[in-house]
């Protein structure tokens, strides 16, 4: 078990080092003159030269890379050219908003997608199956941003039941920061009105964000559960006369959970990626929106930091899931 987890940790570190080399290459080597790229064509030669000196762009690449890594392990990614804050400070300020969105979307994706998949497999080829399959086709084939705009148009503009953009109505103050997640903080502080308002604000972006992953999870759960219905152990359980309900949840579902869990890591990271679009549409002040701005403004330090942060998050989530899977399925931890 320890050996298994240690192996995962090593490959995780390798992936992160790989991402750091790639990002260094992308941001420092390929542009040729990163100072000119960052400052734009209007900057004077002196300004560009000053930035080169300040950022150490004249040094050999190996030295620059080592300095970059040295900073990165101390969460020092330099200053953002746009906000002029240390990049890590900006990320710390914006990440909770993204995390809150990803948690809500992740829960919706897993719970609703899983339930749809189970219902689909249990009532195969009957109406719950057909409607779940049509719904997942709609969810996967319509782009996130189109869903977002449709939901916004119908629910916010036309029906007016949900707020349009942002995390909180302007009339309300943010709850005292504890976790940085407005809904949780509002509950801790006991501010009901703020809680409900934050909840109303998060519904649309979270739903729009969750849809592609929800479809994948529903589909995979269905496939694997249908598959386990054909196995001898289900027949055995039926022969013993166990009720269909417990056959479904105990025998058919259990083995089908593992493949779903294995893609959950990918799906959660895909949420972070798709947040780049959803946060832009809903003016959600999170890290993904910050990342989009960084890329558009060629704020290379911020861009590198956001991508590094996402890949570290990816590695951690996958380690967590691997551990979980190895608890459920001993074959996996013994094989390693």
């Amino acid at each position: 078990m320890t050996k298994f987890l240690l192996g995962r940790l090593v490959s995780g570190v390798i992936v992160i080092v790989g991402v750091s080399i790639f990002m260094f290459f992308l941001a420092r080597v390929i542009p040729g003159d990163p100072a000119r790229l960052a400052l734009g064509p209007e900057a004077s030669a002196a300004q560009v030269e000053a930035m080169r000196q300040q950022m150490g762009f004249h040094e050999p690449y190996v030295e620059q890379y080592l300095r970059f890594v040295g900073g990165a392990v101390n969460f020092d990614f330099g200053r953002s050219l746009y906000t002029d804050n240390p990049v890590s400070q900006d990320i710390a300020a914006t990440f909770p908003a993204t995390l809150e969105l990803v948690i809500f979307a992740g829960l919706a994706m897993t719970l609703i997608g899983g339930a749809m998949g189970i219902a689909s497999a249990h009532f195969k080829d009957r109406w719950p199956d057909n409607s779940a399959r049509i719904l997942s086709l709609l969810a996967v084939a319509m782009p996130n941003f189109v869903w977002a705009l449709f939901l916004m148009l119908i629910l916010s503009f036309w029906l007016g039941v949900l707020p349009l953009t942002g995390r909180l109505s302007e009339s309300l103050a943010a709850p005292p920061a504890f976790t940085g997640l407005y809904t949780v903080d509002a509950l801790i502080a006991g501010e009901w009105q703020v809680f409900l308002d934050a909840l109303a604000h998060i519904v649309l972006p979270a739903v729009a964000l969750s849809l592609p992953g929800l479809a994948q999870i529903s589909r995979l759960t269905r496939t694997n559960m249908v598959d386990s219905y054909d196995r001898p152990f289900v027949e055995f359980a039926r022969a013993y006369g166990f009720p269909e309900r417990s056959i479904a949840l105990k025998w058919a579902l259990r083995p089908a959970i593992i493949p779903t869990l294995m893609i959950l890591g990918m799906q959660i990271v895909a949420l972070l990626g798709n947040a780049f679009i959803v946060e832009t549409i809903f003016h959600w002040p999170g890290m993904a929106k910050y990342g989009v701005n960084a890329i558009v403004r060629k704020d290379l330090n911020a861009m590198v930091a956001v991508v590094m942060f996402i890949s570290v998050f990816f590695v951690l989530i996958n380690m967590l899931i691997d551990t979980l899977v190895s608890f459920i399925d001993p074959k996996i931890r013994l094989k390693a």
Binding site: I30, V269, S311
Partner: peptide, 21 residues
């Protein structure tokens, strides 16, 4: 391992980062 590295960055973000420079 190289494949794993590219899989650790969401496709949209990776494509954006490349286009960004």
């Amino acid at each position: 391992r190289i494949t794993d590295v590219f899989l650790a960055i969401p496709s949209l973000v990776l494509a954006m980062a490349i286009l960004g420079i």
